[in-house]
């Protein structure tokens, strides 16, 4: 299945399966797949430097794969669930995880959302819970927000939506 993918550095390509998470770095990389997803790991022969690729696959058959050069980004996760009873995600979020000092930082680069913790899992958990806490905190102060915070609240509301 991996032979169907096209690897392009720092680019998004469509691949014929859903990618729930992908890790690219020098040396061995470990990942935890979402439950219910099958897991596949491969190594690309197209690069001379050490390069591991972990891919989670599932259905329906669509998705995006982002391949990054080995750098500060330890891994890229695709967040599909907030682990929250009251809210869910309206879209899959791409979250880059990097080690910084003693902490791991989980960051959604496009919107600047982040969370952190002393492990990758805690950083992801912090990221997810901070989305909900920020949404509720900004929402509670909606009438008092300056322009840029109103825009942030709007962005959060378009992505973090109440559970049906």
């Amino acid at each position: 299945m991996l032979s169907n993918a096209v690897y392009i550095n720092r680019a998004s390509v469509s691949v014929p399966f859903v990618v729930s998470g992908a890790n690219v770095a020098a040396g061995k990389v470990t990942s935890v797949a979402s439950s219910g997803w099958s897991f596949q790991q491969g190594e690309t022969p197209r690069r001379s430097d050490p390069f591991d690729l972990s891919v989670y696959v599932g259905s329906p058959v669509s998705g995006v794969l982002i391949v990054e050069h080995p750098n500060d980004v330890n891994s890229i996760r695709y967040l599909t669930d907030l682990g929250c009873q009251n809210y869910r995600l309206a879209e899959v979020l791409t979250v880059a995880i990097e080690k910084s000092g003693d902490q791991f930082i989980a960051r959604e680069p496009r919107r600047g959302w982040y969370g952190y913790g002393d492990s990758e899992e805690r950083a992801i958990g912090s990221f997810a819970s901070s989305l909900v806490e920020e949404l509720e905190g900004l929402g509670a102060r909606e009438d008092q927000l300056s322009q840029h915070l109103r825009e942030e609240l709007g962005q959060l509301r378009s992505v973090v939506i109440p559970q049906r």
Partner: peptide, 9 residues
């Protein structure tokens, strides 16, 4: 400890 990256954010 809040790292340099976190302090920046």
């Amino acid at each position: 400890t809040l790292s340099d990256t976190l302090v920046t954010m």
